[in-house]
């Protein structure tokens, strides 16, 4: 099945609030670094099986948002609830258990340079105390690599791979834990357009296959168009506009037009 055909078949499942389980709630969150207010009273909800794209210019606080969600940064105000748990109240162990269910695809992939692809994939698996036998580990690695179409790379080092391949491997590393939510930090940045489209299709494919929810940070409009069920426009740390791609594309607001022109 060609990725393109998948996308065209795929219905825009703009699940209405309340109709589906909410997996992630960002409630009036503010975050500032000194005088630099990155997030101001920002709210967002993510439902199961839904892809939400947070759209914004560089430096508009998008990355800070998902780092707050995963607990790498602590917000100054507001509450973040992931899979029913308030992130701010979790201790180390509970936070780790929560993180096992939330995948994070880093902008720079963050593959461990000193390890093979296989070890990279096994690292989160082993670190989360998810003990599997060697045979099972092998099967999981092969499955995760098959999901991203790179079965042959298991024994290669990250440095031997191209940028697109590394992005796929990074995705495979998040997939191996079968997460409920995947956070994508600018998944197509730094890739050529063709490779970027391949990644967009992969995101869709993964959502279809595993029924994961995804929060995608991007400023790449092709990506937004292809993967977004809903779009949130972030301007100056505030939620400026929200809706489906089409709804926003039809708005006449100049700040929205900046993106959709």
């Amino acid at each position: 099945m060609q990725p393109d055909s998948i996308i065209q078949e795929m219905p825009r499942v703009a699940a209405p609030p309340g109709a589906s389980e909410t997996v992630l709630v960002v409630d009036h969150v503010s975050k500032s670094f000194g005088e630099n207010h990155v997030l101001r009273d920002f709210s967002l909800a993510l439902h199961r099986g839904e892809n939400v794209v947070v759209l914004g210019k560089s430096g508009s606080g998008k990355s800070v948002l998902i780092k707050c969600i995963i607990g790498l940064l602590a917000p100054n105000a507001g509450q973040i609830t992931v899979l029913g748990q308030d992130v701010a109240t979790l201790d180390h162990g509970a936070m780790d258990r929560l993180r096992a269910k939330v995948g994070f695809l880093f902008q720079s992939n963050a593959l461990y340079d000193s390890m093979t692809v296989r070890d990279n994939l096994l690292f989160p698996l082993r670190r989360h105390w998810l003990d599997h036998g060697p045979a099972e580990e092998d099967a999981l690695v092969r499955q995760a690599l098959a999901d991203v179409g790179l079965e042959h790379t298991a024994d290669m080092m990250p440095a031997e791979l191209s940028g697109g391949m590394r992005k796929r491997i990074a995705l495979a590393r998040t997939l191996i834990l079968r997460p409920d939510i995947i956070l994508y930090d600018e998944p197509t940045t730094g890739l050529d357009p063709v490779t970027a489209r391949e990644i967009d299709h992969l995101i869709r494919e993964v959502q279809q296959k595993y029924r994961t929810s995804a929060l995608i940070i991007s400023h790449d409009m092709s990506c937004v168009r292809l993967v977004a069920d809903r779009v949130v426009l972030l301007v100056d740390g505030r939620c400026y506009a929200k809706g489906t791609y089409e709804e926003l594309a039809n708005k006449l607001d100049p700040k929205v037009r900046e993106f959709f022109a």
Binding site: K67, I70, L72, D96, R99, A100, V102, F104, F106, Q107, S108, N109, A110, L111, Y112, D113, F123, P124, R127, H128, W129
Partner: peptide, 13 residues
Amino acid sequence: VTEQIDAMEVSGT
């Protein structure tokens, strides 16, 4: 710089 330290943190380490 390549966020590997953050990646470790989210990988339960």
